[in-house]
Nucleic acid binder design. Structure first.
Length: 235
DNA sequence: TTCTATGATTGTGC
DNA sequence: GCACAATCATAGAA
């Protein structure tokens, strides 16, 4: 039986589907590859997204079911043939041929399973690309928080990893979105300081007011080093 | 419909 | 790996 299975030439379509599933990280060892990696990169939460890991789990469950069913059915048919051999001559060659037929039939089921998994991955990929295209502005409050940090650290607007995480938490966005925001802000501020002057003054006033309210505790911010007069000279 | 603002992506340099 | 610069694509205002 094993020989009959191993000698069967590999279906080129099946090979193609196998390669694709491997490349997408659905088949083979668990890793962050292909669509799975792309989606998880977008979520920045690390690991596979719920959708992509779901596809992987379903695929493996179905594949196991398929293998079990194939093996059980083959055993069943072989047993039937052996029983028949009591009433009529059944050659080993006939058994082999029957097993080969069963495997061919099951192979088409396997192709269908892999085909539909590939389709699911493709749908997931296009959904991810759509999400990337559909930009959403951050909430007013989030922009406020980011701007406050930016203008109060104008002399060094490079938040540490911890600060980025804290800002991300406060704004309800990801750390990479915080990094993007600061990257964009630094470059746009630098290119057009004049345009941002008014905004800088507003946040400077806010910071100053906050400092006045906390006059009893002299070590609290405005300890950020922000000074209205330095706005134009930095960066 | 056009224009501007803005979040995201890509390529490059360090 | 991070920051910068250029660019893209879209949201939202005019």
């Amino acid at each position: 039986m094993r020989n009959a299975q191993e000698e069967e030439p590999q279906d080129p379509q099946l090979v193609r589907l196998d390669n694709m599933l491997l490349a997408e990280g659905v088949a083979g060892p668990e890793k962050g590859g292909g669509a799975a990696a792309a989606v998880s990169a977008a979520t920045s939460s690390g690991g596979m997204s719920p959708d992509s890991s779901q596809i992987r789990n379903i695929y493996h469950t179905e594949l196991e079911k398929y293998e079990q069913a194939c093996s059980e059915f083959t055993t069943h048919v072989v047993n039937l043939l052996r029983e028949q051999s009591r009433t009529r001559p059944v050659s080993p060659r006939e058994i082999e041929r029957m097993v080969a037929i069963i495997h061919r039939k099951f192979s088409s089921i396997q192709t269908q399973l892999k085909q539909s998994t590939c389709e699911a991955v493709m749908i997931l990929r296009s959904r991810f690309l759509d999400a990337r295209r559909k930009r959403r502005n951050f909430s007013k409050q989030a922009t406020e928080v980011l701007n406050e940090y930016f203008y109060s650290h104008l002399s060094n607007p490079y938040p540490s990893e911890e600060a980025k995480e804290e800002l991300a938490k406060q704004c309800g966005i990801t750390v990479s979105q915080v990094s993007n925001w600061f990257g964009n802000k630094r470059i746009r501020y630098k290119k057009n300081i004049g345009k941002f002057q008014e905004e800088a003054n507003i946040y400077a006033m806010k910071t100053a007011m906050g400092a006045t309210q906390n006059e009893d505790s002299p070590h609290t911010p405005n300890s950020t080093g922000y000074n209205c007069n330095t706005v134009a000279s930095v960066l």
